[in-house]
Design a protein around this nucleic acid. Structure first.
Ligand code: SF4
Ligand code: SF4
Lengths: 136, 136
DNA sequence: CATAAATACTACCTCCTTGTAGTATTTATA
DNA sequence: TATAAATACTACAAGGAGGTAGTATTTATG
């Protein structure tokens, strides 16, 4: 449910890049701009590349660039890569022997909230978040 | 946002006790019934006692008993003791330079969900959850 | 008073997340 | 071709959460 720090980093990086979708960014630039630890970022970026959000150019003058499908990349797909979306289908309590058939007083309340948040992550895209003036 | 394992344990223990609010339970009984590690529980219970949810009887035939105000103990008050409720007032993203005055496209969506969940925790009491047939 | 059965306390261990460090590899360019 | 500037890889350190272990303290009861 709660985003990990790594998810936050990933989302911030990608939203920032989506504000200038054509531009290429070095890890160092992103590190200095977004205040994310350099080496930590240097390990996160390849995984975002492998997941198909960005592409790396090696060697001098290299860096990362968004893929053109960025307009349709949802927050959920980012969370899925870094944290997994499993917790958005689970009960927030760890009870057993219960569920749809034998709901506790929370059951019919928690589910809708959880689903609504999940839906939100699945709806909002990088482009939506980038379409803003504020600094990430 | 997400409940810690310790919060889950605390809620399960207290809800279970609230199903027999007059009865006294030893840590060992709770451990065996709820499958919560004995020593772990032995450290959690004193903190729940200090928080005013339960009271301990020392020595032989001792144990824990709910305080009479249990009917009005909310899930929020339990979470508050164990995890803190801070995350229910925060943004799920770690962005800066933004907020009510300069909302991102998430801002007006996330807030209501977060508040609704918070409200839910603040509304549901031990008694509500105990009023059930199922095993915790 | 001795014993047993309970809570209270304190130290440690393990795992995962986060962050740090160093080195290898790739490529543009003088 | 040598150099510089970039990504890629791998190992390790710090911290917190969850869990384990042992011992001290308290109290009912024979
Ligand atoms: S019945 Fe209650 S405890 Fe069980 S899954 Fe539903 S919300 Fe969770
Ligand atoms: S504007 Fe967006 S990022 Fe900033 S606090 Fe609101 S929801 Fe979070």
């Amino acid at each position: 449910m709660k985003l990990s720090k790594t998810s936050e980093h990933a989302i911030r990086v990608l939203v920032y890049m989506a504000q200038n979708p054509e531009e290429q960014f070095s890890v160092n630039t992103l590190h200095e701009t977004l205040n994310i630890p350099f080496k930590y970022l240097g390990r996160l970026m390849p995984s975002l590349a492998e997941a198909g959000f960005i592409v790396a150019t090696h060697g001098k003058n290299g860096g990362y660039r968004l893929l053109s499908n960025y307009e349709f990349v949802t927050i959920a797909s980012i969370i899925d890569v870094v944290d997994g979306m499993d917790s958005y289908s689970e009960c927030i309590l760890g009870f057993e022997n219960c569920g749809d058939g034998k709901p506790c007083p929370l059951h019919n309340h928690w589910g809708p909230h959880r689903d609504a948040i999940k839906k939100l992550w699945e709806t909002v895209t990088l482009k939506d978040l980038a379409k803003r003036g504020f600094k990430i």
